[in-house]
Design a protein around this nucleic acid. Structure first.
Lengths: 345, 345
DNA sequence: TGTTAGCACTCTCGTTACATGAGTGCTAAA
DNA sequence: TTTAGCACTCATGTAACGAGAGTGCTAACA
């Protein structure tokens, strides 16, 4: 489709533009090492590339800028594939991952800031889904009258809690009995299956002893919801957005920041399908404010099944190669970390 | 110090400027209902007010703008004190508080968005400190080899968890014993006193049976840190910042957003001393980026002791009266809510 | 003595005009 | 097929200018 020379030129334009954030002209390109053609030749090729939709021109006498299609082609075919060493960046990541961090929540939070610092973009980290976690223990701790806190611990060390309401005159050994039954029947069940296990396993057991059937049902309902709780979202470096020249205009930046602020909605627009690195450029994104953004995501896994996502959000003019490498490295290391952790160091 | 007329004029200038976000001139002021003087008279007074430092002039032929001192005087002496009804705003708040929300975390998160929506500024909600909470129960749940999760539940229903490392060959009944002792000795102790209780109560008890003294110490150390964990910070409407004309310049807004992003540092610059409503205007704030902001905070309490803070951050040009009233109402209702909750509905 | 009308002055802001420079497309020569 | 040359386009920066808003000061007025 594209001649070698056209590919070379497109590639150079993308890389120049990513670096300088300004439309790149034929003269500037001619100074590139790899390109030995005269500006005129380049101009001809550029005109062709524009006609084919890979480039765009902000206005008649400006340089060229990659279009969404141009970026896409670059990402799919032109980007340097060989593992160029990530120099100091890799160092920083390595340092981050060799820190001892016991609390996973802290890992995710810090990871979002590290990722955003390294990429100078906005980082999004989705905590792991618990779907595949299995129930390790359930506790029910009465507080003041009629209130108790139910705690669910999974085999990965995840702790979730919720408040439940009890009848005020429930007896201590009632509570104890409930907890015992819950643990007997539900330990080892994946949290995603909690609700279905509930009816098949618990119903008749509990009616044997406890009169207040509805109370108990309510408790377990709450527990089920805990199991289906949204994964936590950590956003780092949202303010980095404003450092990008394309968002120096507040009108552009404001909707984006608002979007990020509604953290739990990210799952609606992050590319979460498939495995591996996903890249969404410009209008490939659903939400309006993302139309001139690119989103890159990667998954991390636990025991071979993907459990969470990390991503980077920035203007379409972003250093795809570098960021994809960073994400790839991070997701790999993250997976290892989680897996080691599971296997008890 | 200031004549009645000067106070009237200052007050009018502040209120006009807050509304219009533009320097207010003598002609505009003369049209005010409460002011029956000619523009010339007003000009004279304004000149005096400026000389005294209550007003400032962006440039020679612009209207006047309140200075920090002007805002301060307005807040301290001029602001309408009588409880002007908060109209629809109060309605919204009432609606928010009458929603049934079991999970406190959700309450705080939503509160930050509600507050920011109502004030059109940035809202900051500090979750309650647990200092005064008392230990209700401690659990220790072994996971994979050498790892366990310790859970601490307080009498207010707060649940905190942390990962602890155990020797791999610890026995089940060792764990059970430890948990029993911990609960025997520490239940009812305020989390703030955990560490001191530890040494006075636990040391000899544990050495009686468990050989791995250090293991146990490590666990309890972790637990203590849980007790001293920072209060969670919820920030709502950070993107609202950008809607204020004073932050249409990205250079101004960016540092502020960065500051907000480092959520846990807010305790460094929020006015958290004393009780009641606190107002910090402009250079009364410590951090650089806050120099042209105002921060208003209020406390909320549980059983007569203040446990947390809510606050609003915006440009110095803000509607102090309204926002203070909103915060006051919110903190009062919040206090009631918490207290009711404690007393078991 | 306090208030007001009048007036000259200042300063911002938007518009227009114009020069500059970067970059292009096209044509013709190599 | 490539390149040099040239006319053309368009954004950007600067300067000039008028309009408008607001001030300070002075003098008249109650």
């Amino acid at each position: 489709m594209l001649t070698n020379r056209q590919q070379l030129i497109l590639s150079a334009i993308v890389e120049d533009y990513v670096r300088m954030a300004e439309p790149v002209g034929s003269r500037a390109l001619a100074k590139h090492e790899q390109i030995q053609f005269s500006p005129a030749t380049i101009r001809n090729e550029m005109a062709d590339l524009e006609e084919m939709g890979y480039l765009a021109q902000p206005h008649t006498s400006a340089g060229r800028v990659p279009s969404q299609k141009g970026y896409r082609f670059y990402v799919d075919h032109l980007m340097p594939q060989d593992p160029v060493e990530l120099d100091s960046t890799a160092e920083a990541l390595r340092a981050f991952f060799t820190q001892r961090m016991d609390e996973m929540e802290q890992v995710f939070r810090e990871m979002s800031t590290v990722l955003s610092t390294l990429t100078k973009q906005t980082a999004i980290v989705l905590g792991p889904k618990m779907y595949t976690d299995k129930v390790r223990k359930i506790e029910l701790i009465p507080l003041a009258k009629g209130r108790a806190v139910a705690i669910l611990v999974t085999d990965t060390g995840h702790v979730e809690d919720c408040t439940v309401h009890l009848s005020e005159d429930i007896r201590v050994d009632d509570v104890e009995f409930i907890v015992n039954v819950l643990n007997d029947k539900l330990v080892g069940v994946p949290v995603s299956k909690l609700r279905s296990s509930l009816y098949s396993q618990l119903a008749e057991e509990l009616t044997k002893r406890v009169e207040r059937y509805e109370d108990v049902l309510a408790i377990v309902e709450e527990l089920c919801q805990v199991g289906h709780r949204e994964e936590p979202v950590y956003i780092g470096g949202a303010a980095n957005m404003l450092k990008q020249p394309e968002f120096h205009d507040v009108e552009k930046a404001q909707p984006l920041l608002s979007l990020l602020e509604a953290g739990h909605t990210v799952t609606r627009w992050l590319p979460l399908e498939g495995l591996g690195i996903q890249v969404r450029i410009g209008e490939e994104n659903p939400e309006g404010p993302l139309q001139d953004c690119a989103v890159i995501t990667a998954t991390y896994s636990l025991a071979d099944s993907p459990v969470g996502h990390i991503g980077v959000l920035g203007p379409t003019r972003m250093d795809y190669g570098r960021i994809m490498k960073i994400l790839e490295y991070t997701s790999r290391t993250m997976t290892n970390l989680l897996t080691q952790r599971m296997e008890g160091n």
